[in-house]
Simulated scan of single mutants.
Amino acid sequence: MKFVVTLDRDEDGMWIIECPSIPGCVSQGKTREEALENIKEAIQLCLEVRAEHGLPLTVETKQVEVRV
Rank of each mutant, 00 (worst) to 15 (best):
H53Y: 13
L45K: 05
C25G: 06
D12N: 13
G13R: 11
Q28L: 11
L55E: 15
L36C: 01
V4K: 15
E33N: 10
I22H: 05
E65T: 15
E11S: 14
F3T: 04
S27F: 10
T6L: 13
G13C: 03
I17Q: 00
V66E: 07
V64L: 15
T58H: 01
T58M: 00
V64A: 12
T61W: 06
K40Q: 13
D8T: 15
E37N: 11
A35D: 03
V66C: 03
D8F: 04
E33Q: 12
P56A: 04
I43S: 00
K30D: 15
G13E: 10
R32D: 01
T61L: 04
F3R: 00
A35F: 10
E11R: 14
G24E: 07
T6Q: 13
R9N: 07
V5Y: 09
V49T: 13
V66K: 13
G29S: 10
Q63D: 12
G13P: 02
V49R: 02
G13D: 07
T6W: 08
L47D: 02
D10I: 04
G54Q: 05
A51N: 00
E41Q: 07
R9A: 06
P23G: 03
C46N: 12
E41V: 00
G13L: 06
E41L: 04
P20A: 09
W15C: 04
K40I: 06
L55M: 14
V4P: 03
V59K: 12
A42R: 03
R67L: 14
I17Y: 08
E52H: 01
V4A: 14
W15T: 05
Q28H: 15
L7S: 05
V66Y: 13
E18R: 13
V5L: 03
E41D: 13
C19I: 01
Q44L: 09
V49K: 06
R9P: 02
V66A: 08
P56G: 00
V49F: 08
L57W: 05
E60S: 15
V26E: 01
V64M: 11
P23M: 12
L7E: 06
V49Q: 05
D10L: 06
R67Q: 14
T58D: 04
C19F: 01
L47R: 04
W15F: 15
K62P: 03
G54K: 07
E60W: 10
G24S: 07
E37V: 12
M1P: 02
M1N: 03
E60H: 14
C46A: 15
G13W: 12
K2T: 11
